[in-house]
Design a protein around this nucleic acid. Structure first.
Lengths: 392, 392
DNA sequence: TACTTCATTGCAAACCTTTGCAGCACCACG
DNA sequence: CGTGGTGCTGCAAAGGTTTGCAATGAAGTA
């Protein structure tokens, strides 16, 4: 990591001479309020004056100071986006979608990374509070009560977490986990492990619940492993444990862990999917590039980003900020409507899942190849693959 | 992508009642300036008063309005980070390093993504200008002259680009490309393709220059292919072209393209590294996970992020903003020192490169396996692998 | 002509904080 | 007692912008 300093010069470039609305006013011979209106309410100013002012502004390179404007209007036209881990490929599509959606509404997005650290999360909300009109909290790791408390400081929309009283956009990972388990059961797996993610993750709890129910309904045994770090090393770290547990299939908290697990198993000489099937969640780009290609539950990250921005802006527009009562600030609450949106997930089957010990012959007519290894089970075992699980 | 609206309730949570410095002053019976000092210059206020003020502030949930503070001090304690494509795994480590470094200096980082769009870049600099103390421009796609012009609006540090008069942090991709070519030549490749990236990329130009020189010095022929999108699809899209060109080795603009290319070649039935060797640049995490594992030029992204933040803050501290002359603003230039830092790169050899048509027997003693396919070349061909290339 | 309406512009307060300066009380020193 | 210093606090200006209100002049209406 050594570095070499190549050059070091000193220049006297004209540095940061801020040109204000006053300069433009002086140059164009009007009052500053007219200049202000030229930008924020052009229809109120004489076309002739307008072009003159605009010309001067252009000439001087004037740009309205957004901080000063925010001080008055109470709106910054920025929105904050707090992310648990920007290195997780799950997030970039969400970020890009949010940015593009925001741009259409003339908003800018500030992204901040918390490194999965709840403390950093809280601090960032505070730091962003006065510089943005609202914050999107993605896969937060802090407590629900803290989130509610922070929501009184700045409008919040929560992604991948359910907190009552706040607008949330959720992905139906419950349904996803169910489909995954049913897929595995249908392939003849009866002993399945669930690789848990961070303990404080809503997604994690949801998956456990749904996967447990689906396994029960399918007559399979579900082993819970975790919590683990939601990264590849988190996945590869439990490879040994997975092998010892003797399961024939694994549903991982996310793709990164699934991929890490496959790596780890590979290092142990365990082949995927021949000996162990692995399913991930998220359908990140990477899952199509590894070998074997990953079977995974696709989550609509782009839609989540767009929806979250929409919900934030909608809530924001309804109740403009800075409306303080006179005197000691009568805390007259603003009614606001909070909605929760649930986005669908889809199981996409690739190459990391295969027949399990209890598999029935794949195709009774076409391919008379023998069933998978250890196949004592005859017909009659419910496959649950058609979605007729009894889970309530 | 269909979504289901699960819930929609209305609540009257106390929403965003901003508590200002004035409220705290009233509550604690002191003047606002004393409250202000309690936070920004605690040693100037009586310890007794201080605790009282702090208690009231805590009680009311007061947080200084950073926008208002910025208006006076001219410093926001934020820095902007403009990224060409956040979905490129090259950037997250840089972002994280920058964030951590900034946090140590009590700064926050706002990340923005431009989708490789020069127009978006310019617009974002303008939008950020007054809300941050400086901007880090990572792998910018706009013209040098535009960058210089923008640098008069807000302090800039440029990463992965050389622009005179501005502080830059560069990675020695020239050296990296040279090492890669020498590695390939040493393996017996004489016909090599360079998969170019975006036309406006400084890295791209640098690689072409250095790779060309190294190939010439090593007696190999270098085919330039491109420009291409610096993504996996950009890589896989040229697979056919690579095959037709008949080269036995490829150096790609970055890992993403290299991985895409390997995918594309695989689909065409061309095996890597048996038939074609592939080298990437960046050493993203992914390059260790694909099969074959990617040989690549590792770039010190973390160090780049840290260095860039340091340079920005140093430059920033020297010349506090908002120092306008009286009257019509005598544009007296501020002398500032601009340095350029070059960070070293390292070739890391994995499994995507192998012997080429002109390879000499790998190990004269140990492995008496025959040489690679088509091996008309005897000894005497310079391998240049030791770094004795004559490139100036 | 007198009165209303409208378009355009100026005035000044307000947003929230920081900070140079001045005031005050108190103490020590001569 | 007078002088100077120190420790703490208040006053008020400043920063760049928005915006309600008032002023101006011109045009339209009765």
């Amino acid at each position: 990591m050594g570095h070499t300093c190549v050059t070091a010069t000193t220049s006297d470039e004209g540095a940061a001479v801020p040109v204000t609305i006053r300069d433009v006013a002086r140059a164009s011979g009007v009052h500053i309020s007219t200049v202000s209106r030229t930008f924020s309410a052009p229809h109120l100013v004489n076309p002739e004056t307008r072009v003159r002012v605009l010309a001067c502004a252009e000439d001087l390179g004037y740009r309205p100071n957004r901080a000063a404007r925010a001080l008055i209007t109470g709106r910054t036209h920025n929105i904050g986006l707090i992310i648990a881990d920007i290195a997780n490929p799950f997030f970039p599509p969400l970020i890009k979608a949010a940015e593009s959606q925001a741009r259409h509404r003339d908003y800018h997005v500030f992204v901040a990374d918390t490194n999965e650290d709840p403390t950093a999360e809280e601090e960032l909300v505070h730091a962003l509070a006065k510089q943005v009109d609202g914050v999107l909290l993605c896969s937060p790791r802090m407590s629900n009560s803290l989130i509610e408390q922070l929501s009184r400081e700045v409008p919040l929309v929560v992604v991948n977490r359910q907190v009552t009283g706040l607008p949330c956009v959720l992905m139906d990972v419950g349904q996803g986990a169910r489909s995954a388990i049913e897929h595995l059961v249908g392939l003849g797996h009866r002993s399945i492990a669930l690789l848990g993610g961070p303990r404080s993750s809503w997604t994690n709890r949801e998956m456990r619940r749904a996967a447990g129910a689906a396994a029960r309904a399918g007559g399979a045994e579900l082993t819970m492993l975790g919590p683990n770090a939601p990264t590849e090393v988190g996945g590869s770290a439990v490879a040994e444990q997975v092998r010892r547990s003797g399961v024939s299939a694994v549903l991982a908290y996310n793709d990164l862990m699934a991929i890490g697990l496959i790596e780890g198993l590979d290092a142990l000489g365990v082949r995927v999917p021949q000996e162990v099937s692995v399913v991930g969640v998220d359908d990140i780009t990477l899952s199509r590039l590894t070998r074997p290609k990953l079977t995974t539950v696709a989550t609509p990250t782009g839609a989540a980003g767009r929806t979250a921005v929409d919900m934030l802006l909608q809530q924001d527009i309804e109740s403009p900020r800075g409306a303080r009562g006179s005197g000691s600030g009568t805390a007259l609450g603003v009614r606001r409507t909070t909605a929760q949106v649930m986005l669908q997930t889809d199981l996409v089957i690739r190459d990391s899942t295969g027949p399990g010990p209890y598999a029935r012959p794949a195709r009774p007519l076409a391919a008379p190849r023998g069933p998978g290894p250890h196949c004592p089970a005859g017909p009659g075992i419910p496959t649950a693959a058609t979605g007729d699980a009894v889970a309530s």
